[in-house]
Amino acid sequence: MTVARPDSTAPRPRGRVLTWYQGLNAKHLVTFLNTLILVSAEWQFGGLGGYDRLAVSLGSCIATEIGLSLLVLGRMPRSYLSPYISGVSLSLLLKPQFGLLWPFAIGGFLAIASKYVLRYRGSHLWNPTNLAISALLLLSAPVLTKLTHEWGNSLGANLVIWSVGLIVVHRAKLLHVTLVYSLSFLALAAARAAVFPDARFLTEAAPLTGPMYQLFVFFMITDPPTVVRGRRGQMLVAFSIAMVEALVRLGLDHEIAWLAPLAPAPALFALAAVGPIAKAIDLRRRAGAQDRVPHLEGRGAGA
């Protein structure tokens, strides 16, 4: 009979959890959250509106990824996580007329193709899903809109998604992006409410408690390939997105007619406008910095 001896090298339970948590791959976590939202939205609320929508958007994203990878890179894609996340997000966020499937097919194509086509200095500029939805909302308004109340308005479900979402973005080291955007949105909502005598802070802040914003703050503005480098820069961009959105909303509250096409989703359009500009500036600065490094080194060496 052998007697088990305590293993002095084994981590304590708390440490184990921490180690496991730290070992989690951020991309896999995002994928997990994405899937969790998909499953819970469909199971509890029928929020998807039919599995055919999911099949078409996933199929379109994956087919486009394979096709363009073969065409542009000459090889099969190394990962399918990106088209998977885009496909799931599209199926959740797009709400076309009942029975229409082509928006999901077109949206999937636009999202993935944008990664290959709309590039600057070797990097894509737009969050693929954001670009696809923004383009479709602008061009297909007669038959298409975005997610609003299709998942119900349960505070409990919101809290669950927010809790899991916050963990995921924390693990992805992008919590500050979500927090800065959210806090900026709230602060600017308060400012907008102060401008109009009949407006209330709760009304202006209310969109942040909805499902579309959950997807927005956890998936779109924190999409690693399209955020800028550096914590301060990321925070500045998150604030800028909130600021542009606030300006659009302010304009809509003042009933500026030419802003009307942006009314269904000011946040999505703000990201579509600010995100690529910020990314392009960031890429340009990085390229400039890289160009300068050998020059400076040489000068220093020579000094």
Binding site: L147, H149, R200, L202, A206, P207, T209, G210
Partner: peptide, 16 residues
């Protein structure tokens, strides 16, 4: 639409 997806506690209150 500001209230479309909002939490029920906000939505149900006519004052909002």
């Amino acid at each position: 639409d500001k209230l479309g997806g909002a939490a029920g506690l906000i939505l149900e209150n006519a004052a909002n």
